[in-house]
């Protein structure tokens, strides 16, 4: 809009300072993850923004190898929580994608579903905390508390609205001529959906699935309520990395935080093109 030199200088200055602000917290955690224990909680003049003697001790510690400095014995290693986060997020994504995609196709092509679209928006508006009490009672009754599949089931239901709305906009965008041609050839509706539509939708399915996976991976509250010990997820486990005896295990927490933060950041940048569509429930496209 404006091309004068002062404007360009202002633009770069403003953008670069905001970029710096948005990176500092993440970089601080990344740097903390590689600091030896002596540099963790240094204050005043000792505070270092960059590790003086970088080490992988924090990561080793998370997986059960104590070093000469970190002699605290971990109750459990970080392996199981990472597995729990992965299993529940992956299977939650599968549940959300299968039910959401088929319902989206039903609505987009045949107008089926009745009140489903509205119900799914409302499901999204409700704070999870306000619907979790009966779910906790049900899960306790069904023996699903503290299991990865119990968690995956809730994740699947909570993120299904996203899978549904994303896939619906992709189906709406798809030209119907190809499907019609196959119908004329004598294919059944189901066969057209399975053999023609879904293969064509592969890129859309992939980006929707990644989007839903990020949401599931990012959860904290639901895992906090539904897991207690064996299948706690990464963010819940993180809280156990501090106690009155050991104090805050800053470095170990930062290392685990880094492990948790990397996958969604990479996946999110990979599906950048579809983020607006996903976040606005398909109301807007980029």
């Amino acid at each position: 809009m404006n091309r004068s030199l002062p404007f360009e200088i202002f633009r770069y200055a403003a953008i670069l300072s905001l970029v710096a602000l948005s990176l500092i917290p993440t970089l601080w955690m990344a740097s903390m993850a590689f600091k030896p224990i002596a540099e963790w909680s240094a204050t005043g003049a000792d505070l270092t923004w960059w590790p003086n003697s970088p080490t992988l001790d924090n990561f080793r510690f998370l997986f059960g190898q104590s070093s000469s400095e970190l002699i605290v014995a971990l109750d459990r290693t970080a392996g199981q929580p990472i597995l729990s986060s992965l299993l529940s997020a992956v299977f939650g994504t599968l549940i959300a994608m299968i039910s959401g995609t088929s319902a989206a196709y039903g609505l987009s092509r045949f107008g089926s579903g009745g009140n489903l679209p509205l119900a799914l928006i409302q499901l999204r508006i409700f704070p999870p905390m306000a619907v979790m009490i009966p779910v906790m009672i049900m899960w306790a009754y069904l023996g699903l508390i503290d299991t990865w599949y119990g968690l995956a089931l809730v994740y699947g239901i909570v993120t299904m609205p996203f899978a549904f709305w994303l896939m619906k906009t992709f189906f709406d965008d798809m030209p119907r001529e190809i499907e019609d041609a196959a119908l004329v050839e004598g294919c059944s509706r189901l066969r057209v959906f399975w053999k023609i539509t879904l293969p064509m939708m592969r890129p859309a399915l992939a980006s929707s699935a990644l989007f839903v996976f990020i949401l599931n991976w990012s959860d904290y509250l639901i895992a906090l309520l539904l897991t207690t010990r064996d299948w706690v997820t990464i963010p819940v486990y993180m809280a156990s990395l501090s106690s009155s005896m050991t104090g805050q295990l800053y470095g170990a927490k930062a290392a685990l935080g880094l492990i948790a933060a990397v996958p969604p950041v990479i996946l999110g940048i990979a599906i950048q093109k579809h983020l607006v569509r996903g976040l606005t429930f398909g109301a807007l496209k980029q």
Partner: peptide, 27 residues
């Protein structure tokens, strides 16, 4: 792309980052 990073960070992890940043001896 860089500006989108904070949004992608797991909120619980972001909470922990800011917990560290706002310590009295923190950055």
């Amino acid at each position: 792309s860089v500006l989108l990073v904070p949004m992608m960070v797991v909120p619980a992890v972001a909470g922990y980052m800011f917990f560290m940043l706002f310590q009295s001896g923190g950055p």
